[in-house]
Nucleic acid binder design. Structure first.
Lengths: 337, 337
DNA sequence: TTGTACTTTTGGAGCGTTCCATTGGAGCGT
DNA sequence: ACGCTCCAATGGAACGCTCCAAAAGTACAA
């Protein structure tokens, strides 16, 4: 930091060079950990860096090196933590390769033009991970690798696809409940494509099994309140049920409250299964039985896939990866009485 | 996008200029919405931009203009949504001024050196918003404005401070409960400085009022499970209580489950107040009475304060802003029977 | 026609790095 | 003392923009 006109200006590589009595190039070498630098000079440079509190400008670095080692990830909104495990999985892999992840939600400045992807591309990310629902994003002529996580189809041409098999998820949930003796299993759904897939699978499977289909909350938001309201509807319908399959854990949590209000006990009276293995399902006193959507694994494999594009041979054709979900049996399900 | 050696290369301003038959400078003017450009050329440029799918390089822009119009925000972890309202408040103000917000958690690549602040400074953010607990970050010689949100003290020298008054928060909670006739009010606490402040206030106020102090869960995490376990302890202690003041809404939610397990009804038997007005307190079927920590307002005012530094006269001395919290009365509290 | 006053457009320098080709020494054998 | 090889260190071009000073064009009055 140098003082000019009483204003702090950020130190540049030249300031460091001068302070250390070397050339800017030598400083650059030290910065990048080049082994060809003599210990004495290296130390001098490091001292100068510390003294001046120098931090290299990534803008300049990126520009000069034509690399950013940065991956962009687009999510719908921070409040919906579904992305959380995926992010952890991505980081696990990318950290090892010294890639950075830039997380962005769909919020964009109304004044500025361009959506989340535009913003990311402008920042020269080397690839994008899309964890958003209908992806009405500007992905036209996207010249970097893209992978869509969590959806089984996309309009992003050339993008890889990775998702966990929702059909199979519904299947293992229903198998589990049926094995426990349940016959009247209601489904709590919600808005959106993911809930839609699970619903479709539920309907199909119940049909195959010749069991009654009861779907509620299709037009509700996929959160606790939605689950609560859907359950109220279910109860009001007067239809008999001994188990509930909720399209996600928040909906399941809402269902539990609604049931509690009418004196129904979980799992004593009603068994409940959620989906996603969200934090709430673990923290919740109830310890929800749920489907692990393998977010961590999705993240890991998405990262590997991206690395293949980035480091390996360029033009691979779009790949589609399907991960098998798994049932996490906890305490919200029990044998039918 | 031009095809060179079969590899897509991003279009630059020169490519656009050539395609539009103008100079790179003219393209730059169009990009920045300069009014001195003739309609004809403007249109030609815009057509070329679209055709080439050109997106300006922010790295180059930032470097050349010596501005990034970007503010960095540091949070502890994405999973803890406490920051959410603050972010919304920040955006509300910064959007209008065309500033972008870069959100970062404390996760840093173990291979790369530098913490979250280093990373942000390297990216040339113009100011930082710190929404992290003890802030053991490298803020030495930070040459950009910093504001610490949510803490009443900080080691970041020169930083502004903005927080809502936790003491007052505890005060209005307890006033509310006392007014409802409660005398035996337990407090559910948890790890961390914020919970600590609320706890301290609780202890002080109860002491003043000559009422029994019951604090549980000090060593628990501040989530649902923590609240659940703390409540179990409270119940096991055998001490009489008719109301609970929980250090946050998740703890309160956990408490409700624990109470339900022993047949205690909220608010019939026990009144509960949470803190933070977190999403769960609204969505939750229970409709939790809680303290709004004014996150939105914190965000707004933090943004205003930063703008004062950035646009106004430079060297202001550190300012400390305290926001008054407010009670949101919903359905988890009732008159003592 | 020429000059004046704008308005529109342009070339060039500069932003803080990286990377490469080159320079300058040190060390060693003869 | 001289050449040769190696290794360490350096200067300059380049990255893709912005911004400024200057050039080119346009319109109108004299």
């Amino acid at each position: 930091m140098t003082q000019i006109d009483g204003v702090n200006k950020k130190a540049t590589i030249y300031d460091v060079a001068e302070a250390a009595g070397v050339s800017k190039s030598l400083v650059s070498l030290v910065l990048r950990g080049d082994s060809a630098v003599s210990p004495a000079k290296r130390e001098a440079v490091q001292k100068a860096i510390k003294k001046l509190n120098y931090r290299p400008s990534r803008n300049a670095q990126n520009l000069a090196s034509n690399r950013t080692k940065t991956i962009g990830m687009v999510i719908t909104e921070y409040e919906n933590l579904a992305y959380s495990n995926v992010l952890i999985g991505l980081r696990e892999v990318f950290d090892k390769q010294d890639y950075q992840i830039l997380l962005t939600d769909l919020h964009t400045n109304p004044n500025l033009h361009g959506d989340a992807v535009d913003a990311l591309v402008s920042m020269d990310v080397e690839a994008v991970v899309l964890f958003v629902e209908p992806a009405n994003l500007n992905t036209e002529g996207l010249s970097i690798p893209a992978i869509v996580v969590g959806a089984r189809e996309t309009t992003v041409k050339g993008a890889d696809l990775i998702y966990s098999n929702d059909y199979q998820g519904s299947q293992i949930v229903l198998e589990h409940l049926i094995k426990l003796g349940h016959k009247n299993i209601a489904h709590l759904s919600g808005l959106g494509g993911i809930a839609g897939n699970r619903r479709k699978a539920y309907v199909e499977i119940m049909q195959e099994q010749g069991m009654p289909r009861m779907v509620y909350g299709e037009s509700q938001k996929t959160n606790q309140l939605g689950g609560y309201l859907a359950t109220k509807e279910l109860i009001a319908s007067g239809k008999p049920f001994t188990a509930i399959y909720a399209a996600n854990d928040y909906i399941a949590a809402g269902a539990i409250s609604a049931l509690a209000e009418v004196g129904k006990n979980v799992p004593g009276d009603i068994s409940i299964v959620g989906y996603d293995n969200a934090p709430i399902s673990r923290e919740y006193a109830m310890k929800l039985t749920t489907v692990d959507d393998m977010g961590l694994e999705l993240g890991r494999q998405a990262a590997e896939q991206i690395l293949k594009h980035l480091e390996g041979n360029k033009s691979q054709k779009p790949k589609q990866i399907v991960i098998e979900p798994s049932l996490v049996i906890r305490k919200s399900t029990a044998k039918k009485k």
